[in-house]
Design a protein around this nucleic acid. Sequence first.
RNA 1: GUGGUCGUAGCUCAAUUGGUUAGAGCGUCAGAUUGUGGUUCUGAAGGUCGUGGGUUCGAUUCCCAUCGAUCACCCCA
Length: 450
Amino acid sequence: MSQKPSIPQGTRDFTPLEMARRRYIFSTVERIFREFGFQQIETPSLENLSTLTGKYGDEGDTLLFKVLNSGDFLKKAPDILLEEKNSNRLIPHIADRGLRYDLTVPFARYVVMHQNEITFPFKRYQIQPVWRADRPQKGRYREFYQCDVDIVGSDSLIYEAELLCIYDRVFAAFNLPVQIRINNRKILEGIANQCGFKESFRSFTVIIDKLDKIGADKVKEELAALGGDANAAMLLLEKGALDKNYLSSLKERMHDVTGLKGLAELEEMLHYLSSYHAINEVVFDGTLARGLNYYTGTIYEVVASNVQMGSIGGGGRYDDLTGIFGLKGVSGVGISFGADRIYDVLLESDLFPDTVANSTQLLICPMEDSALGKAFEYAMQCRMAGISSEVYPQAAKLKKQLTYANNNQIAYAAILGEQELAAGKVALKNLQSGEQEIVDIESVIKKIKA
RNA sequence: GUGGUCGUAGCUCAAUUGGUUAGAGCGUCAGAUUGUGGUUCUGAAGGUCGUGGGUUCGAUUCCCAUCGAUCACCCCA
């Protein structure tokens, strides 16, 4: 009995072409991370649920993939809960582990566990998949890769500035025009405090974050429902170009201490950036909030300028993420690249270079079974000379062998038949031009390497 | 988690209000060309019409369920 194979919802297979393009993304990102002095780590796909839960808000907890305990896990579950059939209450008794939801929280856990081996400030990057039990849609997958760079153990705003440069450099390398939005949670807090949203800060951020989508009137309406002064808040929540005039005008109207601190941070960051000329558009966006709970200072978000897609990158400063795991006073800041969304955007914008699929350079085509040994020998010789080579595994019709070369975009075919064998040479065919000449294997190597 | 749209060949799509044997292009394979691909010509293979049930003399078509894809909301990369 055979069954129709399938893969879980929201997951994908990747073809060789897709992988070549994904590798292009990863290697570009990685190259620039290294340029800034970051070192790579990896963490396990599975984390203890106690590490993950409560870090992303209630919504985040429901989106965590939980993994059932081994063994006869139901035996250990309390009978009352089993009868109740309440999944949420039963989970802690039957699942101790879950798939990671992002790379930042596992990183904070890593820092705490390895604090004695780490030299601070610690600059790490991490390129790994994460999982979310979200319903899939455009640009949303249940398994996707994030590329994270973070620095922990310093609260210097130099790093805020550097991270912005990383965003700019990476997207410049992709030739993808983006808008890099920045804001500071302290400014948001200041506005909230000043306008009577202190108690409802989290709801406040969720609402103003939707300004683009639902419009000013609707936002005002929803803010008013929270009980604060919606009009006063709206006047402070502007989205503007990143310039000194705008900031000074905001500074005049800001009275809250936390808010002023946020503005000072932003100013210092801009001071560092004054010598750097960003290729992409950088804007201060007073309505940028970001849902994740742990951000405390600068926050970033990146959207593609010409493609309709959610954010393709985001990040920010978190002052006390390691504190949750028992290491106080270690501030961190980091950003993330959503590799799969970047893939979709690059594909839609037709921005993948043709050269990403670097295929085999030479196919050796044996015409007789007696040529197989020599073909194998030549292939090894070429490989050791740095030419990626393949041997067609049997003396099939030449047509078939050349079709194989053609479909795999192989540049050269070395035909090895009775005559060539006797002469100690091959017929080297250039599959782009169609030209062909009889040469020895040393000349083949020289010609392809030239 | 809530709602809308859609599931026909490997891919993109047809099939006249429910009617006999479900078609085309592209792709694949074979031959024309016994040692020459990417162009051309000829031919072939490939379908439980997503799955299960119901209505009907008869269902790819109508109804229900289910699975999957997709889009929007929520939230996010």
